[in-house]
Design a protein around this nucleic acid. Structure first.
Length: 569
RNA sequence: GGCUAGGUAGCUCAGCAGGUUAGAGCACGUGACUCAUAAUCACGGGGUCGGGGGUUCGAGUCCCCCCCUCGCCA
């Protein structure tokens, strides 16, 4: 039994995420976590909400709520939706937790003591009326380029020109509307990533088995242009981890907090501490190599936009601390999922959001499609036609119908119990050989976290069941040799139990429905097929389950395509 | 403009340490079967692997140039 630490990139707090976000990190992480648990390994699967920063403040202001209240509410909303998708986190934490406050300040202090943080004085826009410095996004004015009156301090949304706040005509504070703005000197902390460049480069070079997507992005940031740059890790906000604290190796940082990309990954650790505090568990054995984590395999999942923070920023924090923290072993990154010829868009409400998805169909339908089309080698594309045909064919026809025809046939001819012991005849032995080969391919793909390939191999196993049944034809055999027909069905029922076990990482609800119908609780992984195929003995009672999956009709498909094309209501 | 990843059957994608007639699923056609959610199974049609050069006995698979798409950066 091995020990696996798994983290998913933590979703930002300002609203409900769309399917592209889901398939880029949380869902494949869940697949892997479930698979490893299924194999009997010890798994710690951590996720959280990323709550600090400007967008959270803006979203809270828009909702007319204090930012702390807003985040608390949205965390609960996201947690509920995650549960709806059956994401099996051991803990779904919050980057605003006391644990993360303390740990982020701990890392900042240690990094400061290691000489990896420097103070930088720069000029920034200050709002006298608001009594605070304003991030670029908090300033609006008229674009000097196109005349758009609501251009932001960092960029004009109308003509997309990159701007500096001082470029704006009639600049004003987004918070108060005040035009009483002035440039003032201010001090920020920078993480000296550049000092760790060689070490990071060696580390990345040593990861020859990582996805190209991961290493190529890391190398680009390491070597592109002038190479890896130091990055500011503080911001002028009130919502966040205070940058001035007792024992801090610097002064004058009052009113500033750490920037999200610094504290967000630290939440992986703090989230585990939250779990420990809630359950009485031991977090250190997962994260401290001096306290039991030396044999932990740590895998991170994320979309490609998050790769720089996980290959450079966070490792600088971990390695630079000089303390024995567990460093990531494997980074699985994903491309983007597009929606019907364009991008998913949170701001324009284009595409399907997680809550909407669940309101239309149960989690398994989405899990199956998303995972079997995960954007691994390139950006992938969601279309309703593809979704409909995949779900109908793979889930309803290939798997669902197999379970249905076997259980119903048995009930009709022999009643609601396994009608015979499993006896491996020539046909069954041949199938077991094929199955064994297919299972090995499935396991190999899962071990390598090849998501699409895994789905393909799993489906191939389902198909074997149909091939077997079709060739064995118990419905005609029963007319001349009832004992033989009983044997075929006993074998098929046991095959179905195996499908439940093997399919659980992808479609946990359907897997449970099968097991419940079979009145079985043996979820153990079929390390030995010959034993596993006999798990349900003769006379074992079962029930005929409701159809596992329904089909998506053309009318529904057209209706949904129309509904999600534009504005989210 | 720089960089990344791509451009392979109608659709979604595999394949790429270069090597027999280029694969899968879906869709399509024919047949089988009738237990099952008009499901399943078998067989078949269909691609000059973005374009052009080159290396090689041999190239979707390596090199060069060009075109197109997506994203990141400037």
């Amino acid at each position: 039994m091995a020990r696996h630490l798994i983290t998913s990139a933590i979703p930002y707090i300002n609203g409900i995420k769309h399917l592209g976000n889901l398939v880029g990190s949380q869902l494949p992480a869940d697949l892997y976590a479930r698979y490893l648990r299924g194999r009997g390994h010890d798994v710690m699967f951590i996720c959280a909400t990323d709550e600090h920063g400007t967008p959270a403040e803006l979203a809270a202001a828009k909702a007319g709520k204090p930012v702390a209240d807003y985040c608390a509410e949205m965390h609960d909303v996201q947690a509920e939706i995650a549960a709806g998708f059956r994401l099996s986190f051991d803990h779904f934490g919050r980057s605003s937790s006391p644990q993360n406050h303390a740990l982020t300040q701990h890392f900042a202090r240690v990094l400061g003591e290691q000489g990896l943080i420097r103070e930088v004085t720069e000029k920034q826009m200050y709002s006298v009326a608001d009594g605070r410095f304003l991030p670029d996004r908090y300033i609006e004015g008229t674009c000097p380029n196109c005349g758009y009156t609501s251009a932001r301090g960092d960029q004009c949304d109308n003509c997309t020109k990159q701007l500096d706040p001082v470029d704006l005509i009639n600049p004003h504070s987004v918070i108060s509307g005040s035009t009483d703005l002035e440039m003032r000197e201010t001090k920020h902390l920078f993480l000296r990533q550049s000092a760790m460049k060689a070490k990071l480069a060696d580390w990345i070079d040593s990861k020859t088995d990582w996805p190209v997507l991961t290493t190529s992005i890391a190398r680009k940031w390491l070597f592109d242009g002038e190479g890896l740059q130091d990055r500011g890790i503080t911001r002028d906000l009130s919502w966040g981890v205070p940058a001035q604290f007792e024992g801090a190796p610097w002064a004058g940082m009052e009113g500033k907090v750490f920037y999200v990309w610094f504290d967000a990954p630290i939440e992986y650790i703090a989230g585990t501490q939250e779990w420990a505090d809630a359950t009485g568990g031991d977090w250190a054995r997962w994260w401290r190599t001096d306290k039991g984590a030396e044999d932990v395999t740590y895998t991170q999942f994320m979309g490609k936009d998050n790769v720089p923070f996980h290959t450079l920023g966070f490792p600088v924090t971990i390695l630079g601390s000089g303390e024995p923290w567990k460093l990531v072993d494997y980074i699985k990154s994903f491309n983007y999922l597009n929606y019907d010829g364009g991008q998913f868009s949170t701001s324009r409400g284009r595409g399907v959001f997680m809550d909407q998805a669940l309101s239309i169909l149960p989690a398994d339908y989405w899990r199956w499609w998303l995972l079997s089309h995960a954007p691994e080698s390139a950006d992938a594309e969601f279309t309703w036609e593809n979704f409909q045909s995949s779900v109908n064919k793979d889930l309803a026809d290939v798997l669902g119908n197999l379970v249905s025809r076997v259980t119903k046939f048995c009930n009709a001819k022999f009643g609601l119990e396994v009608p015979s012991e499993v006896v491996l005849g020539e046909r069954e032995t041949a199938l077991m050989a094929q199955f064994s080969e297919g299972l090995a391919a499935y396991v190999k793909a899962m071990d390598a976290i090849q998501v699409r390939r895994s789905a393909e191999e799993l489906r191939a196993l389902w198909v074997l069941g149909n091939e077997y049944l079709q060739a064995a034809a118990p419905w005609s055999v029963v007319k001349t040799d009832e004992a033989a027909a009983r044997g075929i069905i006993a074998f098929a029922l046991n095959l179905i139990r195996l499908y439940a076990v093997l399919s659980r990482p992808f479609i946990p609800d359907a897997a449970q429905a099968i097991m419940t119908a079979l009145d079985c609780e043996d979820w153990s992984w079929p390390e030995d097929l010959d034993t596993a195929i006999r798990a349900l003995p003769a006379g074992h009672r079962f029930t005929v389950p409701e159809n596992l999956f329904r089909k998506i009709t053309d009318e529904e498909r057209e209706d949904w395509a129309k509904r999600f094309a534009g504005r989210r209501d």
